[in-house]
Amino acid sequence: MTEPRAPQPLVRIRNVSKHFGEGETRIDALRAVSLDVFPGQVVALLGPSGSGKTTLLNAIGCILEPSGGSMELDGDVVYDERWLRSDLRRLRLDKIGFIFQFHNLLPFLNATDNVAIVLNLAGLGGGEARKRAVDLLDYLEVGNRRNAFPAKLSGGEAQRVAIARALANRPRIILADEPTAALDSKRAGIVMDLLRKLAVEQEAAIIAVTHDEKIFDRFDRIFQLRDGRLDTGS
């Protein structure tokens, strides 16, 4: 009888470092950071300004190449020499969803098209992409605002549409940069519950940078960053 296999981390980081500049102007933004995030987990990155939270998020999001260390996303070792810029773009498209502080919806597309565009970019046709976008908006309970442009959406509605966009390609890793900063505590709680539900249902790993103390209890683990070093998660 075989023993059940231990789950593999979706994000596996070992001794990742990142520095900017050289000599006297050198700044070490990340120093030998290691962490694992597993499917279904919702983790927070905390730390004061300049502690390296955003740098770490950018590195995991494949938009900033680390200076050293190794990183695996959903089993793929990234940033070794075989990766091209276009490969990283494809990896972002297929495996990573982004949620922003200020939703960053494209102002010239309505809610449905803001979600459908990600599916279009992944190669799904117009009609089918729109249908799936509408399903996602319904799932996130903003289906009634499917034809509204971002300027006409409330903060909570816009953030839900942004979450729908992040989920459109069913990514296994969702990176959120201050996802509740622009929301009141009630809506912040709703959004975090939603992210938790998604993490569980879609077996995704959610990593959020936040300063929002009122949602700390919604995370499975909290990692504290100080001067580019990571404290053990609590």
Binding site: G61, I63, S86, R89, R90, R92, L93, D94, F98, F100, N104, L106, I117, V118, L121, A122, R165
Partner: peptide
């Protein structure tokens, strides 16, 4: 944003 979400 477009680049971040994977637009070529």
């Amino acid at each position: 944003t477009l680049k971040l979400i994977g637009a070529p």
